[in-house]
C-alpha cells in the first residue's frame, strides 16, 4: 500500500454552499433571500468504504453530492475527490467517479442497453478489451443477459436501474456516488442492487457514497452512516454505534399461555395487547431484557418471547425529529 492509498477518497473541509433564492414579496415584486444549503461541513471518507449519507428532504444531501461531482462549486471551503478539486478539475474528476441519480437516466431511451454502454465507452475512451471484460462481468453480476439487447424504453424500472448502475461504472471509477439508487424499486430489484454494490466494493474496492430514504439500504450496505440536517452533520458513526447511542428503548414481546390483564413489571410499560400477546417497552437505563423476562415469568406462564431490536428507521426518525 502506497502513501497515496491512505489519502481519503473524499474530503470536505469547512464546505458551505449558499444559494440566493427568489421569493415573492407581494403580488408582483420579488426579492432575493440567502439560503444556506450546506453549512460548514467537514468530513473524510476512507477509500474502499461504503458510506450512507442520509437526512430528511432539503437537508443538503443533493447539494453535497453535486459539489463532490463538480456540478456545483462550493461557496467556501475545500473539496477533494480522489485528491482532485472537482470545481477546478471537473473533467478529470468525471473520469474517476461514477454517478447514478435514481430519478434521472443517462441511458439512451430508444437504444438497447448494450448500445448505451458502447457509447459510454467512447465518451470515456475505455479500451475495447477492458470494456468487454467489464461488460461481461456486470452483465453476469446484475443478471442482465436477458434484457441487455432490449431498448431501454421497454425495460422495467428495476432492469433500468441495473443498467444505470452498470453504465455508471463501466469506466472503472474509483468512487461511486449514488443518489437514491433504490427509489421506486421492488424488493427483488432492491436486493439485486444491494448485492451488486457489496460485490463491487469487495472485488474492486470502489468507494461508495449513497444517499437514500430506505434505511434497509443503509443496514445492508453501510458500515458508516452520516446524518445531516439543515446543512450540517448531526451524526456520524457506524450503524451499530448509532443504534447503541440512540436505541435507548427496547420492547419485549411476550406470548402468554392465555390472555391476561396488563403485566406490571418495574421499569416497563405495556404498549400493546393482542390476545395472549403483550408488548412491554423499557428504557435500557432502567432495566435489562433479562430482568424483564424474569419478572414476567414470576407472574404468568410464558410460552414464547422475543426482544425487538430498535429499528434503524425509528432511530433515524427520532434523530430527525430531535434536530427539527
Amino acid at each position: 500500500m502506497t502513501a497515496n492509498d491512505r489519502d481519503p477518497a473524499i474530503e470536505l473541509r469547512d464546505v458551505s454552499k449558499t444559494f440566493r433564492v427568489a421569493h415573492k414579496k407581494g403580488r408582483v415584486r420579488r426579492g432575493l433571500r440567502e439560503v444556506v444549503a450546506v453549512d460548514d461541513i467537514s468530513l473524510a471518507i476512507e477509500r474502499g468504504s461504503i458510506v450512507g449519507y442520509i437526512g430528511p428532504n432539503g437537508a443538503g444531501k443533493s447539494t453535497t453530492i453535486k459539489m463532490l461531482t463538480g456540478i456545483l462549486v462550493p461557496s467556501s471551503g475545500q473539496v477533494r475527490v480522489d485528491r482532485l478539486d472537482p470545481s477546478r478539475a471537473r473533467l478529470e474528476v468525471t473520469r474517476r467517479i461514477g454517478v447514478v441519480f435514481g430519478q434521472r437516466s443517462q441511458l439512451w431511451w430508444d437504444l438497447p442497453l448494450r448500445d448505451s454502454f458502447s457509447l459510454l465507452r467512447h465518451v470515456y475512451r475505455v479500451p475495447g478489451p477492458r470494456h468487454q471484460e467489464n461488460l461481461d462481468r456486470f452483465v453476469e453480476l446484475l443478471d442482465m443477459a436477458e434484457f441487455v439487447d432490449v431498448p431501454v424504453r421497454q425495460l422495467s424500472l428495476g432492469q433500468r436501474m441495473r443498467g444505470e448502475l452498470a453504465a455508471a461504472i463501466l469506466h472503472d471509477p474509483t468512487i461511486l456516488f449514488l443518489d437514491e439508487p433504490t427509489i421506486g424499486l421492488d424488493v427483488v430489484s432492491k436486493e439485486a442492487v444491494r448485492r451488486f454494490l457489496i460485490e463491487l466494493n469487495r472485488e474492486r474496492h470502489t468507494t461508495v457514497l449513497l444517499t437514500t430514504h430506505d434505511l434497509a439500504d443503509v443496514e445492508r450496505l453501510c458500515e458508516r452512516l452520516i446524518i445531516i440536517d439543515h446543512g450540517t452533520v448531526i451524526e456520524d458513526g457506524t450503524v451499530a454505534d448509532i443504534k447503541e447511542r440512540y436505541g435507548t428503548e427496547r420492547t419485549v414481546v411476550i406470548d402468554l399461555d392465555q390472555p391476561s390483564v396488563p403485566l406490571t413489571v418495574a421499569g416497563t410499560e405495556v404498549v400493546r395487547i393482542d390476545g395472549p400477546r403483550q408488548w412491554l417497552r423499557f428504557r435500557r437505563a432502567d432495566t435489562t431484557a433479562a430482568a424483564v423476562v424474569a419478572a414476567v415469568a414470576e407472574q404468568a406462564d410464558v410460552r414464547d418471547l422475543t426482544v425487538d431490536e430498535p429499528e434503524i428507521d425509528d432511530i433515524v426518525r427520532h434523530i430527525y425529529q430531535a434536530s427539527r
Partner: peptide, 12 residues
C-alpha cells in the same frame, strides 16, 4: 427538467 447535470458528469 434538471437533466443538465448529466452533461457536467461526463468527460466532454
Amino acid at each position: 427538467a434538471g437533466t443538465f447535470d448529466q452533461f457536467l458528469l461526463r468527460p466532454l
